[in-house]
Design a protein around this nucleic acid. Structure first.
Length: 486
RNA sequence: CGGGGUGUAGUGCAACGGCAGCACGAGUCCUUUGGGAGGAUUUGAUCUGGGUUCGAAUCCCAGCACCCCGACCA
């Protein structure tokens, strides 16, 4: 049921539904208010608007730098995959079959071989890799691509699950299993660093259970984040593919001894879904909240010029401050539009800009400006003389505060339970739940059926601990993370 | 694909089977400008196709679209 909206309230359509009333609607309202994205004419496909795309651009820029430090090279592979390639790996095709879009008609006639629009690029890339790799000297092969992929999801949701989405997918080939696994784990650390230090989203690292792992992978690692409704969101994943694909795509190399070996592979990806995670982690009922390090506009300077004669002075001063900030590498923007100040404040608040600078004649007379934090709403009167430093410090403080706040929230809603009653209660209360699990697939399925909770991951950094499966009572050696998820 | 719901102006809503209206938005002008301002004025709509009726936004049938719940999922 859609929430009824007040028909005649003046700012009804601009108001954001409170989170506790309807979390889904709140999420959509924040996206609309911040002007991030909307659905396009094709069902489930998203139009990412400039303010939303800026978040993705920054993501690309930051990740690209990290990838390059590790020697990863960017490349691009085709959108269309011949159906027979996709069908080569049995688990893989089975996993993706229900959600593939297939072109059967082109150039005015029926195609002899249908073309699958890539749901992911393992198959088409590995088919090519097999020609690129001949010797151990060609390894490791470290390739990344920024691309769009299509998965015909039944129920789309802006950013979180759209039919077409943007991502980066990295694909590597290594000489040994150990090296491949180390690499998959290393990418996980890169993603963790990005999630926690850039997006200020605390994540839990771990291994996926058999039933949750990537179709065709030997094992899947993931980062799980908690949204403000207590649900889990998979922030990014990294897969150790073993030799599953190498064997069907014939990725072979001659080792130092002249023996033919299959390569060991990994793949890893992060999508525009992370922007949904960003929204659901930090935003409030006033709109979006962007952590400073992922914000393109970190500071918005709003001018207040009540009379025409001081307009020029105020705008001049605003531009001066803007320049000083830009020279310090701070992303700032002047809003000198001739509208009421309140209108500007609301707009930039909805858009989540970390710091707002209010500058008017009164401030200039005092050689100061008013700084307003988006995360807390706190107002600070700052002398103009060292404003760049004040702002830089404040940005750093906001970044830390957002992370700490999110971490505290996650911890407050993570329960460790030992009985089935407590488990059910904790899941109903929308928590992350750490509980023992016997490792059996049917037990996992039964828990999902009864409570809606799935195993998000088997966390690393779990102390070994003997216990009993919360459902079956069978012995278990460690706890796994259960939650409802997106 | 199953269950439920809704289709009226850009948006949110109203109209007993009898002249399609209100609020907000948008455009223009004037006054305003330290948290969404006021006044004047203009703009603009019944999802599609059938049927019932003197007469349909309203009732019936079919189609289409959207929303919610489920299965699926980065």
């Amino acid at each position: 049921m859609m929430l009824p909206k007040n028909p005649n309230e003046k700012f009804a359509e601009k108001k954001i539904t409170a989170r506790k009333d309807d979390y889904s609607q709140w999420y959509l309202d924040v996206i609309a208010a911040a002007d991030l994205a909307e659905y396009g004419p094709v069902r489930g496909c998203m139009v990412i608007k400039p303010h939303g795309y800026a978040l993705w651009e920054k993501t690309q820029k930051i990740l690209d730098e990290k990838f390059k430090e590790l020697g990863v090279q960017n490349a691009y592979f085709p959108l269309f995959i011949p159906e027979k390639l996709l069908k080569k790996e049995e688990d893989h095709v089975e996993g993706f079959a229900p959600e593939t879009a297939i072109v059967t008609y082109a150039g005015g006639k029926k195609l002899e071989e249908p073309l699958v629009i890539r749901p992911t690029s393992e198959t088409i890339m590995y088919d090519v890799f097999s020609n690129w790799i001949k010797s151990y000297r060609d390894l490791p092969l470290l390739i990344n691509q920024w691309a769009n992929v299509v998965r015909w999801e039944m129920r789309p949701r802006l950013f979180l699950r759209t039919v077409e989405f943007l991502w980066q997918e990295g694909h590597t080939v290594h000489e040994t299993e150990a090296e491949a696994d180390r690499y998959a784990r290393q990418m996980l650390e890169i993603y963790k660093d990005f999630a926690e230090n850039i997006m200020a989203i605390p994540v839990i690292l771990g291994v996926k259970s058999e039933s949750e792992k990537f179709a065709g992978a030997q094992c899947t690692y993931s980062l799980e984040a908690m949204m403000q409704d207590g649900k889990a969101l998979q922030f990014a994943t990294s897969h150790n593919l073993g030799q599953n694909f190498a064997k069907v795509f014939d990725i072979k190399y001659l080792d130092k001894n002249g023996a033919t070996q299959y390569g060991w592979q990994t793949s890893w990806g992060l999508s525009t879904r992370t922007i949904g995670g960003l929204i659901m982690t930090h935003s409030d009922d006033k709109g979006l909240v962007i952590p400073p390090r992922i914000a393109s506009i970190q500071v918005i300077i709003t001018t207040i010029a009540p009379s025409p004669e001081n307009k020029e002075t105020v705008i001049g001063k605003a531009k001066e401050i803007d320049k000083i900030l830009k020279n310090q590498g701070i992303g700032s923007l002047v809003d000198s539009r001739d509208i009421r100040p309140g209108e500007k404040y609301f707009e930039w608040e909805k858009k989540g800009i970390p710091i707002r600078v209010e500058l008017g004649p009164k401030d200039i007379a005092n050689d100061s400006a008013v700084l307003v934090r988006r995360d807390t709403g706190e107002k600070i009167i700052a002398p103009l003389i060292d404003i760049a430093k004040t702002i830089a410090d404040l940005l750093a403080k906001i970044q830390i505060n957002l992370f700490d706040r999110a971490l505290e929230y996650q911890k407050s809603r993570t329960k460790t339970v030992d009985t089935w009653d407590d488990f059910v209660k904790a899941i109903e209360g929308a928590n992350f739940v750490l509980a023992h699990w016997s490792g059996e697939k049917d037990v996992e399925a039964q828990i999902k059926k009864e409570t809606g909770a799935t195993i998000r991951c088997i966390p690393f950094n779990q102390p070994a601990e003997n216990g009993q499966c919360v459902k079956s009572g069978k012995p278990s050696t460690k706890r796994v993370l259960f939650a409802k998820s997106y």
